[in-house]
Design a protein around this nucleic acid. Structure first.
Lengths: 210, 210
DNA sequence: CGATTCTTTGAAAACAGTCAATCTGTGTGG
DNA sequence: CCACACAGATTGACTGTTTTCAAAGAATCG
């Protein structure tokens, strides 16, 4: 029987059974209940984490205690604080579960070992990193170009799976708008088309954070 | 005599003279006048470009023809459209010179050849990519957390070199605010301190786009 | 010096944020 | 099984910031 993680790998790259088993043996699975932290501010993040099930959010606490959602991660994507991982410094972020979730953890060390051993795996990791960067830039582009309403429409177009799964206040926070504003926009809901911006026209791919 | 690019390399990684010469031989230098395009929307970006002198901007044209500045690049940083580079698709962005500039170009192919041959160079490239990603995320964090005024203060703290070098309308565009708003903020100029947000407290490093 | 680009300024209007109250649904424990 | 508590969503009135448009003032470049 193959796990979600193994399915993800098999769908992404070509692997022998031995390789698949070997990778799996270097990873651990962790079950998290709703609201449980995967990473807490101040801790050093030392893993690569694949979300095999559920939904998590990465957020940071700003001045006056407001929470700002930096990332949302559902099954088949990656979560973690990349900055903390590569600098080995304490994280400024929190990651917790919006739903009961299951994540596959791989230590940085093991992850790099796998990369070295299996070029295809390495290419996958690199491609995920690239996609993260592109996704970040698209998000910046959207925030520069769009009004609150257009941003939400763009978000909904990019991540239809999240719209009815993630609480609205978190989506609002992710978009940098007030939850009341989002609520009002939704009730109006004249289903406006998002004005298409060249830079964003091919970007309807789910965000990956590695 | 060493060029700016060679100085950059020597300050970043350890190289023999032969290696340095070899790398240099695989790159070309291009002089650009003010307002000249380095990349124009619709073209495929195929290089890695190191800015050895001057200042460039990456921008995109949104609906209604508004220009949105996605990146600013001064000497000793990198410019280019990474998305177009890795996907080999036409770029949605324009890059042009704010000042007369000099860039060192290296084709993707040659760049990868150097990476393969010289591990330290590869590590440098990887580290630049990582820093780009972190910088993007910090920019997102800032746009979520800060008011227009705080954003400008944060920008000025991060990039003091740019404040009096890049036209204000472009800085405004970079920050996603109207140029008039920026102008008003500057004249008020009660030099407010930026409220520090945990996530951004160590991020005062110049943006690198590789 | 003339032309273009960039910046400043003013006033009105649009937009989004805040605060506070109410409403809804879900899950828990008595 | 009901009542209650709690998290999330909605609504209204108000405030404040930011945008827009238009015009005038600097600065820069050829």
């Amino acid at each position: 029987m193959t796990t979600e993680f193994q399915n993800y790998l098999l769908h992404s790259i070509a692997l022998t059974n031995e390789q698949l088993d070997w990778i799996t043996s270097l990873c651990t699975t962790k079950i998290l209940r709703k609201n449980q932290y995967l990473l807490q501010e101040g801790d050093v993040w030392k893993h690569y984490a694949f979300v095999s099930n559920g939904c998590l959010r990465t957020y940071s606490t700003g001045c006056k205690g407001t929470e700002h959602v930096i990332g949302l991660h559902i099954e088949n994507s990656w979560a973690g604080d990349y900055e903390s991982l590569i600098t080995a410094k304490p994280s400024h972020y929190n990651i917790d579960c919006i739903e009961p979730s299951e994540v596959v953890l791989c230590t940085k060390q093991n992850f790099e070992r796998i990369c070295k051993e299996i070029p295809a795996f390495y290419e996958l990791a690199k491609s995920n990193l690239n996609r993260s960067l592109v996704a970040s830039q698209n998000r910046i582009m959207a925030s520069l170009s769009y009004t609150a309403e257009q941003q939400y429409a763009y978000f909904a177009a990019c991540y239809p799976q999240l719209v009815n799964r993630v609480p609205q206040n978190m989506i609002a926070s992710y978009l940098g708008i007030a939850k009341e504003t989002l609520s009002r926009m939704r009730t109006k809901s004249v289903v406006k088309a998002v004005p298409m911006i060249p830079a964003l026209q091919f970007s309807h791919t789910p965000q990956q954070v590695l």
